[in-house]
Write a protein that binds this DNA or RNA. Sequence first.
DNA 1: GGGTACATGTAACTCGTTACATGATTCC
DNA 2: GGAATCATGTAACGAGTTACATGTACCC
Lengths: 182, 182
Amino acid sequence: MRTLKYAILGLLNRGPMTGYDIKKAFDDRALYNFWHAEHSQVYPELAKLVKEGLLDYETVITGEKLEKKLYRLTEKGAKDFHDWLIFDAEVDRTPKDTFRLRTYFYDSMDKEEYLELIQSQLVQHKERRDYLREIVFSAFKTIPDVGTPELGDYLVLDGAIKREVAYIDWLNNCKEIINMSE
Amino acid sequence: MRTLKYAILGLLNRGPMTGYDIKKAFDDRALYNFWHAEHSQVYPELAKLVKEGLLDYETVITGEKLEKKLYRLTEKGAKDFHDWLIFDAEVDRTPKDTFRLRTYFYDSMDKEEYLELIQSQLVQHKERRDYLREIVFSAFKTIPDVGTPELGDYLVLDGAIKREVAYIDWLNNCKEIINMSE
DNA sequence: GGGTACATGTAACTCGTTACATGATTCC
DNA sequence: GGAATCATGTAACGAGTTACATGTACCC
């Protein structure tokens, strides 16, 4: 599927960036919630995209001699990205989840052992939910205008919060059901 | 992390199985929602686990000469599984999601193009939600007893439904916000 | 001078998917 | 006899993580 390719093309569609910038974007509060790559994946992919004619770059010197490569989309790259973007794909395979797997095997644990795991998951997911809410609260006083890239950030952050809320809801339900026994 | 290893150990903890049985279990309505592997991953992993002393197997003949390997946990395998099961791990990295990525780049699409994508996602996720609800409705007249493996199935299916509901809720919200303009 | 961030790469390894490859059993 | 299912494996490739490796620029 080469989704990393399109994530990179999409970022460069907003303007020229270096590999370092792209890696930083992948660590960003919004993008981090549904896409990520290490720089060891980014640099080879950039080289490949240049070879494929979807990108070109210009070498820029910072200070005395620090070279950086500023990548930008070629016309072909822009077209390829847009074709992918509007392609009506099937939904992704349901993501793997190790805690759900542990829950599936809950009957091989003592009740107390499982409840401790649940408790730890609850703490971690609540922290994440609160962190995301804080970001949205502090960055967006109101819903950004349609057409701005900021609305993209807002929408995916809203989705990330809903995902955490649903997970917490499920964890509480598991806890309640397991607790009901006796 | 070798989670496939523990998924296999967990299944065998319920009783002896062949590689084929394990692959079938990965396709099962409940497990499918959060873990999966092809047989090309299962068979080599089984061989590896035997070499590591966590499994052994007995060769069984079906019919005239069809050989199958019936794997079961060794004592070491059972201990290793239980140690993993109750290990308080960090939550998984947030899963990658190509539609969320497309939404992040929504501003490079026409409004109509994006709304069509949303519509398709809504149809697919609603189908999945309804399918999961149907399974739970037909398989569980009431919540299974604590201690039974069936409760594991029930809990993870409930989680899968909640995940779909939250996704649909988010899609509707995106649709509404994008539609609000003009 | 030292620490942090900027900047770019490669290597080794694990994990996951699709395709290749083969053969037996069961049921219609 | 044919189709679906049972049964087990390997090969090639793509995707992703951690570690190795190097050097510059900027700010205090």
